[in-house]
Design a protein around this nucleic acid. Structure first.
Length: 245
DNA sequence: CGCATGGCCCTTA
DNA sequence: TTAAGGGCCATGC
């Protein structure tokens, strides 16, 4: 039945031996269920940090999603990692983002720079990731964000101000943005009227309408533009905070 | 405006 | 290796 000299069988036998505890923690992820800003979420954590966040109907379903993506099993956690609950609202916790493609990594890195209460278009993300024309691909990378809420992919919206898709559903995306104080409706109304940028004639700076600098512009000094080119033509330079260009 | 269409490009099956 | 499709976008009625 078994052969001591068959390398395949001895290899398989070695794999069956339980790994030392420390190693097991490095290899396996552990799940926990915690309340998020828009309902409960399941969270998978390794010793490197949070690796996966999704909503699911059950722990089994979550483990299934996890295995489908990472090809590894998922064990229950004794308790949620320290700081996780606040991190789901503030986005500050260690992440385990191994396994991302370079493109996905740069897309998520760009998303992580968007402050609370602000939004950016998908095209902006693509440009920040170094692939200005890969807009749809960037959207796909965001759709596959392993750690929503922690990396705020909900802050990327369509160029016309419509929320767009979200792993937890568009209504959750809108609710989250309102919770963060984003001016979702104003951005959409401006875009509908053809205004995608706002500039201040006191600072000479042009911004995305959700930029905290744009929101402080006194109405009397505010100028709307349909394109960055038009704003540049009028003598405005791109804001260093929201980086419209 | 609202809708349809073609272009774009990274992933996955 | 290839082909299809997706959290988009600008354009054209």
């Amino acid at each position: 039945m078994t052969s001591d000299h068959d390398p395949l069988l001895t290899g398989l036998a070695a794999m069956a031996v339980p790994a030392p505890g420390r190693l097991l923690d490095k290899v396996t992820a552990r799940w926990t269920r915690v309340p998020g800003p828009a309902g409960d979420v399941y969270v998978a954590t390794t010793d490197l940090g949070v690796a996966y966040v999704r909503s699911a109907g059950s722990a089994e379903e979550f483990a299934g999603l996890f295995r489908a993506r990472f090809g590894r099993p998922l064990l229950p956690a004794a308790r949620p990692p320290a700081g996780l609950l606040t991190a789901l609202r503030t986005g500050r916790v260690r992440l385990d983002l191994r396994g991302l493609t370079p493109f996905a990594a740069s897309v998520l890195a760009a998303a992580a720079t968007i402050p609370r209460g602000e939004t950016r278009p998908y095209g902006w993300i693509a440009r920040q990731a170094g692939r200005p024309r890969a807009v749809r691909a960037a959207a796909s990378a965001l759709a596959a964000n392993p750690v929503p809420l922690l990396i705020p992919c909900h802050r990327i919206v369509q160029a016309d101000g419509v929320a767009g898709g979200y792993v937890f559903g568009t209504p959750s995306k809108e609710a989250l943005l309102r919770l963060e104080g984003a001016n979702l409706d104003e951005v959409r109304d401006l875009a509908a009227a053809g205004t995608r940028y706002l500039a201040s004639d006191t600072t000479g700076v042009v911004c995305f309408p959700s930029c905290h600098n744009a929101r402080r512009i006194t109405p009397a000094h505010r100028h709307g533009f349909a394109s960055l080119a038009a704003a540049g033509q009028a003598g405005f330079r791109p804001c260093l905070h929201c980086l419209p260009a």
